[in-house]
Amino acid sequence: MQFSPDIKGTLSPFLAVKKLFEHPKTICYPEVKKEQIDGYRGFHTNLLADCIGCANCQDVCMNEAIDMVTIAKDVNPKNASGCIPRIDYGRCCWCSLCTDVCPPNSLKLENECIWADDKADNFLYFPKDK
């Protein structure tokens, strides 16, 4: 058997050692947070003063994640059904089709996207009024 050492191939991986002296690429979460980006598909928000309760969002949702429910709070006087959407985050896939079809553009997605809970039943979410 011929002995032909691959010197370059053996030594070149050691270039990785110089990374030891570089600043780490990771960030120290949660002290340092990642820069937030406009237009991220996070949680829903629904401006109740604009929502007309048309249920277009419910109709387009392929996961059947949206319920139309009545609430005690005042809603838009133009809201013919008196219902507003409530979203089941156990089913939602954040495709944002519901925000695309919203006629008064009241349903939107915000940057916030972290929610931990110990009960699976708690993930029925009323969009924030903003």
């Binding site: 691959d6 191939g9 053996t10 070149s12 991986p13 270039l15 990785a16």
Partner: peptide
């Protein structure tokens, strides 16, 4: 180029 040195030309991988 960095990947070349640690992966594609790495004698272990070859």
């Amino acid at each position: 180029l960095a990947y070349d040195s640690i992966f594609f030309e790495n004698s272990t991988f070859k």
